[in-house]
Amino acid sequence: MAAGGRQQKGANDGFREAVAQWRLNLRTEVKKSSSLPSAMFDACDPMLETRLAESAEAMLACLQEPDDHLRDPGDSAEKRLEHVSPAELRQLPTQVAAIAVVPLDLRTGLLAEYLGILTDTACVANGPAQHGAVQLLQRDFGLDRGADIAGLAELLTQQVQDSLAHCADASEATAEQLTVACQRLAAALALHPPFEPPAESTP
């Protein structure tokens, strides 16, 4: 870049000259690749070309330079460690022994949980997930889409209450919450477009 004669100048001059040349080239490139006609640059805003070049330069610099967190992992690599006291460790066997051994069933509460999730998805989701949930509510819980939203809501409330009745922890579910949610679900069900089963493929 810097010719031999130019080395007589200050140590950084060659570098500055190269940067200036590079900026000029960049401006030319920006102008060439812009959809604006050349005249527009000067006509609209004399600084437009410069600002575009600076933006492009800044973007190129970002691409060249890795992010700070990548550059020096040492500084940010200090990781959190949860503190546990010796007293807490000492108590552990006692705490474990204090828990009674009771028979456990993996399927406990499965139906109520399933119904709750289908309800949530039918009310909150959209697209294929909502479609799938509605379809499964119809298939697995016999909830046919009815014309009467109120009647459907009542039916749903009853089913949910029946399911939750088997769970000891379900007392927090108030009747009002249930009713509101079931009304939303009934509306989602009633408004949902009829399910079209996929056509059987023939061999």
């Binding site: 069933d105 993996l106 499965l110 949980e113 999730i117 769970c167 679900l185």
Partner: peptide, 23 residues
């Protein structure tokens, strides 16, 4: 859905109906 819920259903996400997680 329920792996961030406590035994009474507290936690997240918050469903439209109270959900009690299964076994």
């Amino acid at each position: 859905f329920c792996h961030h819920m406590g035994p009474t259903g507290l936690g997240y996400p918050q469903p439209v109906l109270p959900i009690v997680p299964s076994g």
